[in-house]
Design a binder for these strands. Structure first.
Length: 567
RNA sequence: GCACCUGUAGCUCAGGGGAUAGAGCAACGGUUUCCUAAACCGUUGGCCAGAGGUUCAAUUCCUCUCAGGUGCGCCA
């Protein structure tokens, strides 16, 4: 049982003994807004005053009087209009810290049956990944990490855009303008150049569109030559994406792109027509929704081709058969909200009732407008990573010039990529974000380098203490300073916060948490020397700091960011 | 026109029924013979867009208004 649950149980028991069978609102614990109001608090008395009758403070008095002697609670106080403020025993805190590892936590109360399938990143073939792909990629990855941490089984699926009209265009451009030499040297750049060239040229030469449709049709009909080209484009693109993912420390379990569902879509249309969910309208197959909360959704075009919604439905159909689905999570930007609401609704009409979540966020753009690969005003992820790592490297050179060069490089890589990921993950924006180099590449304040630095400093004093892990781990906890107790109390909240973050799909909850923790650690670090303290105090401090650092590392890990022994 | 998202300090953002609304940056003032100053401490800065409603309690929930963004039948 998690710490909060144990505590709730104690209070719940008291509530039952006092108020017996009356239907009460549940007893919920919350973190105290301020530690002077205790370590936990509950508004049970206020919430239930109407049901029980009498004023909240009296109810609180009766509840507190009924609490049995227990190992967790030091004392309770009644405050303000009827808050019950709960203070935890030092021995209980110590006991928690000593047993603080994921393995020892019991998350079995979570509904972990089946697979959580998470769709994220999903770039379109033949274009380099740019910062528009960053959010989906890192948020999706963090969601996966959180659920794995809690013991769920996850499937990370990269639903790549490997089918559709862009291939007709690309094949036409390939025949007209391919630069062999460049294609050999940097295939992805050449493909991208071809795509831009096509988009620019088609404005003055509309006949290209007819050619593109023709090539697309050939591809769709299985033409050998075009199919090989198509496969080649995909291979080139995936290789390129692999480099970005590897630098970001991101991986997937499956790469079922849109083309994977090609042969599965006709069946969906049949089902929709059979169940009278879809109808024919002006040559299209279309779903109209009752009421007008949602615009109608075309699932097959006049020319017989399928659409995005069709492929997503086929995807759900496939997953229901291939997996034991717990839920499906889609991470995309908020412009696609209508699309998701539409096909979720259609799935529901089909009786495909597995839980589906659309996790959306605002897009990143320049102050003067949106990114567009066609206009060429994009920042490639590779370039962003390079720049960030370079800046990190410069700072290391300045702060720590004596480190061996290889270590400088590896530190720069961890710090540089971490900073970019953290920038995105620490925000909870469902509105648009204006891209700003200085903000993204900041290494001070609420950033991952700040947290990594905190970690590295504590590692340093731990090394210098000369004490073994064992010796530190078995230290007796003595709260020498108030801030040390504050740190320990925050650690009590950690697992519950991970659950909260996972359930709301909000990695920024984790980012906030570890940032707050890092601030406290730095504050303590600065205020009181560890190594020169009296032996038992020193051991206690090191134990508390190391426990906190473990949570820092775990928190960063949940964001997909690494820690360093020194930096 | 309809739908969705957003509006919190000069700027960028947390918070999301509960006690005195928080960070970072910027500005200003301090801290190093001492464990990594990528740090720490302090000061200044708020009608939580506006108006109603629900509630013991609203910045948070509901309704309306205003402002910005996004989407709306054969793109993905």
């Amino acid at each position: 049982m998690l710490f909060e649950q144990q505590l709730e149980l104690v209070l719940q028991k008291a509530a039952v003994s006092v108020f017996g069978t009356i239907e009460l609102k549940p007893l919920l614990l919350q973190k105290s807004s301020n530690l002077k109001f205790g370590d936990f608090q509950t508004n049970f008395a206020m919430v239930n005053s109407k049901i029980v009758g009498g004023n909240p403070r009296d109810i609180a008095v009766r509840l507190i009087a009924a609490i049995d002697e227990n190992a967790l609670i030091e004392k309770c106080e009644i405050a303000g209009p009827g808050f019950i403020n709960i203070f935890i025993r030092t021995s209980a805190i110590e006991n928690f810290l000593k047993n603080m590892s994921v393995e020892k936590q019991d998350f079995s109360f979570l509904n972990r049956k089946g697979d959580i399938i998470i769709d994220y990143s999903s770039p379109n073939i033949a274009k380099q990944m740019h910062i528009g792909h960053l959010r989906s990629t890192v948020i999706g990855d963090s969601i996966k990490r959180m659920y794995n941490f809690l013991g769920y089984h996850t499937i990370a699926d990269n639903h790549i855009g490997d089918w559709g009209t862009q291939f007709g265009k690309l094949i036409v451009a390939y025949h007209k303008w391919i630069d062999r030499e460049n294609y050999e040297r940097s295939p992805i750049e050449e493909l991208e150049r071809l795509y831009v060239k096509y988009s620019q040229t088609v404005e003055s030469e509309p006949e290209l569109e007819i050619q593109a449709r023709f090539e697309l049709k050939k591809l769709q009909e299985g033409d050998g030559y075009n199919t090989n080209l198509w496969k080649e484009f995909i291979k080139i693109s995936l290789q390129e994406y692999g480099k970005v993912y590897s630098r970001l420390g991101i991986s997937f379990d499956t790469f079922y792109g849109e083309s994977f569902y090609n042969d599965k879509m006709p069946h969906v249309i049949e089902l929709l027509l059979e169940k009278k969910i879809a109808s024919m309208d002006d040559g299209t197959t279309i779903v109209f929704f009752e009421g007008d909360e949602l615009p109608p959704c075309i699932v097959r075009k006049k020319d017989g081709a399928f659409l995005y919604a069709t492929s997503d439905l086929a995807c759900i159909d496939f997953r229901r058969k291939a997996y034991d689905v717990n839920r499906m999570v889609y991470v995309t930007d908020d412009r696609q909200q209508n699309h998701f609401r539409q096909f979720f609704k259609i799935a529901e009409l089909l009786g495909w009732n597995e839980q589906k979540e659309h996790v959306y966020f605002g897009i990143m753009k320049f102050s003067d407008g949106i990114f567009s690969s066609r206009k060429g005003n994009v920042i490639k992820l590779m370039d962003l990573l390079d720049e960030s790592v370079k800046r990190a490297r410069d700072i290391i050179e300045e702060k720590n010039p004596t480190l061996p060069p290889e270590e400088k490089d590896s530190i720069a890589a961890v710090v540089g990529t971490g900073a970019i990921k953290y920038f995105d993950l620490s925000q909870n924006k469902t509105s648009n974000i204006i891209f700003d180099w200085e903000k993204v590449l900041s290494f001070e304040g609420n950033t991952s380098p700040y947290i990594q630095y905190t970690y590295a400093r504590i590692q340093s004093i731990t090394r210098k203490s000369g004490l073994s892990r064992e010796e530190i781990q078995t230290a007796k906890v003595i709260f020498d300073e108030q801030i040390e107790r504050d740190i320990a109390i925050q650690l009590l909240y950690f697992y519950q916060e991970v659950i909260r973050a996972s359930e709301s799909y909000k990695p920024n909850i984790i980012a906030d948490f570890i940032y707050e923790l890092a601030k406290k650690i730095n504050s303590l670090y600065n205020a009181s020397p560890v190594l020169t303290a009296e032996e038992s105090i020193k051991r206690s401090k090191l134990f508390i700091l190391n426990s906190a650092c473990e949570v820092l590392a775990q928190g960063l890990e949940l964001l997909g960011i690494g820690v360093l022994e020194r930096m």
